[in-house]
Design a protein around this nucleic acid. Structure first.
Lengths: 202, 202
DNA sequence: TATTTGACCAATAAACGAATTTGGTCAATT
DNA sequence: AATTGACCAAATTCGTTTATTGGTCAAATA
């Protein structure tokens, strides 16, 4: 969805723009960043950005997409590792919070939810949610098939996990409670591990 | 902390004021409610309110305190019931969400957290948090002593529970996801129950 | 032809001051 | 002791002006 304006003429310039935009969006946010300064920073005219991107919103989308793609990539390493499901799940959640804690553009869209703005960013966020749902389902299903986890059904478990994980995002990233909650999250992971171990077959 | 101005002259008038204030605060929120309309509603002069309350903030505090006290009272019925710990915990959480979902003045202070305002309401909110911490600890400890629950230690369990419960408050009450999450919360409670049952002694 | 520019415009936001509202006080009244 | 209503300072709202900014495009460049 939402591809660039023409056929991406010069990839170098395009990525220069994205790099510059990332720098400013990350530091000042969407509204306090101007297209003018994004362009000036790479010694180009503002009009040029519109040769590569349809709008400021599309450019922000690109930045956000890249930010979340980096998180996805790192999480996939964990999901695809040969470890057991319990280890994967705890590592996934722990790493997820650690990485997202630094994803400031994602934070901004989280906050925007409260003002019911930033509709233009919905696709990227939905995509990330779908990714997470998929990965958690995969981990839990595999652990279940290996007989490592014993669950009555997978879907409700994933739903609950998603609800909790996403809910905690808000105090964590919008209210800066990462430091405060970090230890409790570790305790939560320990509890999950123990809970699964007690339910393990054999 | 923060008692009324004189020695509460006429309790009837005082509670009329609180009732009127509750009505307006609940419908229009703290800022869009004026002292004038609170007074006019009970056919009194605005100045009279200041004979019973120091300030608008103190009056709001009173309203919020009453709102949360009602929730506490209902929750205490559950905590003090003769049921087992698992039943108590699931009922506690389910009822808690149901009651708080209607506590609109509490919602407003929740939202205020994001704007770092409403400092004057901190005491009442902290009190409610302490209440919850206490009740959960009690339920879990009793369940633990009865051998009904088997936990390595109580404190981290309560911490995790509090973190999760309070985190979910935000999407639930500020983003109006109560309807959306209601079923998932039921699933969560089922999972908790099952988890405890699997760990039960004997 | 493929890029890049910069002047230009409409729309949004910021700045500003005037007018209004509102929280809070208090001397007078009941 | 309880209640009022006029009064004030501070905050908020409102309307207007000014400045900024997202976006366009014809012309220039390479």
């Amino acid at each position: 969805m939402a591809t660039a304006a023409p056929k991406t003429p010069s990839p170098e310039i395009r990525s220069q723009i994205v790099a510059s935009a990332t720098k400013f969006f990350s530091r000042f946010g969407f509204h306090k960043t101007t297209m003018e300064e994004i362009a000036r920073n790479i010694h180009k005219a503002k009009g040029l950005i519109y040769y590569y991107f349809r709008s400021k919103e599309e450019l922000f989308n690109e930045v956000l997409r890249a930010e979340l793609q980096a998180v996805k990539d790192e999480l996939l390493v964990i999901v695809r590792s040969p470890d057991d499901a319990i280890h994967k799940i705890t590592e996934y959640i722990r790493t997820r919070y650690e990485l997202l804690n630094r994803a400031v553009n994602y934070h901004e869209t989280l906050k925007a939810d409260f003002f019911e703005k930033y509709h233009f960013v919905k696709d990227v966020r939905d995509d990330f949610d779908a990714f997470e749902q998929e990965q958690l389902t995969r981990i839990i299903r595999e652990g279940s098939e290996d007989g490592y986890l014993q669950l009555r059904s997978i879907e409700p478990t994933v739903n609950v996990a998603m609800m909790i994980i996403k809910s905690i995002d808000i105090p964590l990233f919008l209210q800066d409670k990462y430091a405060e909650y970090e230890q409790t999250i570790v305790e939560l992971l320990t509890m999950i591990t123990r809970s699964f171990q007690n339910q393990r077959k054999e």
